[in-house]
Amino acid sequence: MSAPKKISLHCTVNGEPRELNAYPMARLLDVLREDLRLTGTKEGCGEGECGACAVILNGELVNSCLVPAIQVQGAEILTIEGAANHPIAAQVQEAFLRHGGVQCGICSPGVILAAANLLSHDKAPSEADIRESLAGNLCRCTGYSKIVDSVAYAASDLKGTRS
């Protein structure tokens, strides 16, 4: 069995073009955390169950622990480190801070990106919509009430700035 070879990849991470050398099957999670030192993306389970590793890949929310590096060739990736420069994600971050959506913080990067992703598609989600769209993001601290509230506040804040 011959050892797998690293391949060169180029993609855009948080608006910046990046050149990478990675094994094709390396997890995007590790590429972000170890190669790019973007440690805001977290690992809670490593098997697609918790959403702590969620990032936005070409406009879609994915669990980066399940994405092989080869899949990001030419892709655009938004991680939590880029959220402050993303109009919707930044508003979500602010709402989480003000309305108690953050406790221990380990789920927050994934939850905030999941919420930003929802609000990019749906400007006025109902509580049920919010709960449904966050069902892939486990949080052990908050009981979700304040997360749901934070997303709802972010939605109404965005409406204020949009109208």
């Binding site: 955390r33 440690t39 993306t41 801070l97 003000r98 953050v102 913080g105 927050s108 905030i112």
Partner: peptide, 24 residues
């Protein structure tokens, strides 16, 4: 006004430093 969580901003930005984020 509610007092904001002290380390909340770092956490919301993914800048809080957890053990697995340590590198030598």
């Amino acid at each position: 006004m509610t007092i904001l969580r002290k380390e909340g901003r770092e956490k919301a930005r993914g800048a809080a430093f957890y053990v697995d984020d340590i590198a030598f």
